[in-house]
């Protein structure tokens, strides 16, 4: 049995059916991300695991024990919140040591564990500070330390980095991942930021309106989206009606919608050698956007289709606006969506 299992979880708030028959498994030591837009239910599932919300039906198991109805304080879980929720009247030390105090551990042990964890999150020197004296990033690290010092069975992170600016967020993402691996801590991470999910996760579960739309390792989700929702949420897919594309090239497709990643389309000024594995179409560059390290072309190939094509930006754009170009796409990169 997996380390954490959710079986047939249903949850309704007033008339809002927030979780619809959720089935999910997490292996020990994994970092799993619950990804999705606001209101999709991912935070609610996390809070059900923490015991902060009750489930209407279903079973939650942790380490082969049914914890569905266990009170929050008995679940041996660590949690980091978006707003940190550090206790304002306690110092960093006291905040971190609080869970250990609740476990009634002897003072010396609390002191030792607290000191070790402070080193781990690089907060030496701040032991006697109160939260109002710390920056956002430091507060988040205190929150993390507080959550893991009790050696919980699972660590829950509810959009912990949403309130932090982009630069610092990247640093913290790497730090959190490092610590998680070091401690082999089973972790569930909730975010709406797909880049973040891709960077940090062993597996991703993409939520849509209370259901899990697709699960898989990051690369899998990115290269093989199953539905239109997944394709538009992850990455920058070109999503087009199969019928529109069929007009241009005599190919038919199994499903109504297809998706193509911008970076798999090759551009050339003249026709390229074709074979059975590829498609070629002509188009006109109508827009050119520089996004730092990526150059994105918007290419009009027909009345209904404008394709986004990404290339790495080396020194300058190889093509100009209004230029007619040839696009080469490998058939295996054309994904049919449900």
């Amino acid at each position: 049995m997996a380390y954490i299992t959710f079986e047939n979880i249903n949850k309704t708030f007033d008339t809002n059916h927030v979780l619809k028959d959720i089935q999910l498994e997490v292996e020990q030591g994994e970092l799993v991300t619950l990804l999705g837009p606001s209101g999709c239910g991912k935070s609610t599932l996390l809070r059900c695991l923490a015991g902060l919300e009750t489930v209407d039906s279903g079973i939650i198991s942790l380490n082969s024990e049914d914890i569905t109805h266990r009170p929050t304080s008995d679940r041996e879980i660590g949690m980091v919140f978006q707003q940190y929720s550090l206790f304002p009247n306690m110092t960093v030390e006291q905040n971190i040591g609080f869970g250990l105090k609740m476990k009634k551990l002897p003072k010396e042990i609390i002191k030792e564990k607290t000191q070790n964890i402070i080193k781990l999150v690089h907060l030496e020197g701040k032991e006697k500070h109160v939260p109002s004296q710390l920056s956002g990033g430091q507060q988040q690290r205190v929150a993390l330390a507080r959550a893991i010092v009790t050696e919980p069975k699972v660590l829950l992170l509810d959009e912990p980095l949403s309130a932090i600016d982009a630069q610092l967020r990247r640093v913290l993402q790497i730090e959190i991942r490092k610590i998680q691996r070091q401690l082999n801590m089973t972790t569930i991470f909730v975010t709406h930021d797909q880049d973040e999910a891709m960077i940090m996760s062993d597996r991703i579960h993409l939520f849509n309106a209370g259901k899990i739309e697709q699960s898989g390792i990051p690369v899998e989700l990115y290269t093989h989206p199953k539905t239109k929702f997944v394709a538009s949420f992850i990455g920058q897919y070109n999503i087009i009606k199969a019928s529109d594309l069929s007009e241009l090239i005599e190919e038919s497709f199994t499903k109504e919608t297809i998706a193509i990643r911008p970076e798999v389309i090759q551009i050339a000024t003249k026709e390229m050698p074709q074979n059975n594995e590829t498609l070629q179409i002509q188009g006109k560059i109508i827009d050119l956007i520089s996004r730092g390290n990526i150059l994105r072309y918007h290419i009009e190939v027909s009345r209904n289709i404008i394709l986004k094509v990404d290339t790495l930006f080396r020194t300058h754009s190889l093509f100009d606006l209004e230029q007619r170009v040839w696009l080469n796409i490998e058939k295996r990169n054309i994904i049919a969506l449900d």
Binding site: F81, Q83, A147
Partner: peptide, 16 residues
């Protein structure tokens, strides 16, 4: 002081 959030955090850490 965002009482509700603080209480949740305290609960997770094991107190009533």
């Amino acid at each position: 002081v965002s009482a509700r959030e603080l209480i949740e955090a305290a609960q997770i850490l094991g107190c009533t």
